[in-house]
């Protein structure tokens, strides 16, 4: 294992120290491993709390700031945070208008946020609403399974819902908007390499030269099938076609090509060109785009594609100012 770390056991704590040093406008609670907006709680504003395992940077801590999240809890690498952290985050962002928990649909994340919401309800009067993101078309959806994973749509949702909360919308409206975005977004990912969890010390799975995984998640878990490596135009089709087969998209989408950590931007733009060509052929105009490593899986090489059906309201909220370490415009 070759990594820029001190000790595998200290990776998350050390990275949070770095975030605090690099971004003095954030407040980092090192004991609870929560990144707060420096001015939290913002009175009268719905507080947005997310969180998840570390290893996906900049998500979620890098999306804390005006126009996006109020707080983010960091778990161990690829491991959900614990309820105590979520309780501390929730209490720290409650400005009197309630708190929205944005939870990616993974068994551990859902259970820990559920226990946290129960604890908050038992201890204080803070109103908490939970929205679960489940947009990964690689996973078959069924009532009898854990359901689809929460992936790329989460980034778009946190931005758009963050803008809505910043406008002063009430909790119910913010939660409705979040659910509408989850319903309108779909993602699919692929990997060229595995990744190494620091505590494990070796790659999570073996992926031979010449092969790739299609339908990968963001935790180094293997995908649904392994196929020979192919040109970017074929890979783009393997990602976009299942998305279009799963949901009807019309003109005006937000198109997000996400890097998984180990893929350079030049390759992401090669993929983006192919995705844009497929969408053009399908008569789906792209209204906005996002290209880059925003939801990573440590050093995994690969990408994911997310399409979100937008409308004038979503685009206006997308364009609204945001000022976080990971996303910043108009501010």
């Amino acid at each position: 294992m070759k990594k820029l770390i001190n000790d595998p056991a200290d990776v998350v704590a050390d990275a949070l120290r770095g975030m605090a040093a690099a971004h003095p406008r954030l407040r980092v609670d090192h004991e609870n491993r929560v990144v707060f907006r420096g001015d939290a709680p913002v009175q009268g504003k719905v507080g947005l709390v997310s969180g998840g395992g570390a290893g996906h940077e900049p998500m979620h801590g890098g999306f804390v700031g005006p126009g996006m999240l109020d707080a983010a809890c960091a778990g161990e690498v690829f491991t959900s945070p614990v309820p105590d952290q979520m309780v501390a985050a929730t209490q720290g962002v409650d400005g009197g208008a309630g708190v929205l928990h944005i939870v990616k649909n993974y068994t551990g994340d859902v259970m820990n946020f559920e226990m946290a919401a129960e604890l908050v309800a038992a201890e204080s009067g803070t109103e908490v609403v939970t929205v679960v993101v489940d947009d990964d078309v690689a996973v078959q959806d069924s009532l009898y399974t854990a359901g689809r994973r929460g992936v790329g749509t989460t980034v778009l949702l946190e931005k758009i819902v963050g803008a809505a909360a910043e406008e002063g919308r009430p909790l119910a409206a913010v939660a409705d908007l979040a659910r509408r975005i989850d319903d309108s977004g779909r993602s699919m990912g692929m990997a060229l390499t595995s990744c190494t969890v620091p505590a494990a010390g070796k790659p999570t799975f073996e992926l031979p030269e010449g092969e790739m995984e299609i339908g990968i998640g963001i935790h180094g878990e293997p995908g649904r099938r392994r196929v020979p490596i192919a040109p970017a135009r074929d890979v783009a089709a393997m990602l976009v076609e299942p998305i279009l087969a799963d949901h009807t998209f019309s003109d005006g989408v937000i198109c997000f090509v996400n890097g998984l950590g180990g893929t350079p931007l030049i390759e992401l733009y090669v993929v983006y060109a192919e995705v844009a060509a497929i969408l053009e052929k399908s008569g789906i105009g792209i209204a906005r785009s996002l290209v880059g490593p925003y939801m990573t899986s440590l050093e995994m090489a690969g990408c994911s594609v997310t399409l979100l059906q937008a409308d004038d309201e979503l685009l206006r909220l997308w364009d609204a100012p945001v000022d976080t370490p990971g996303l910043r415009w108009g501010a």
Binding site: G75, T79, S80, P81, P83, E114
Partner: peptide, 12 residues
């Protein structure tokens, strides 16, 4: 276990 483990194993 609930406050130290996280993931699915912590709550379970």
């Amino acid at each position: 276990l609930v406050s130290k483990v996280g993931g699915a194993s912590g709550p379970l």
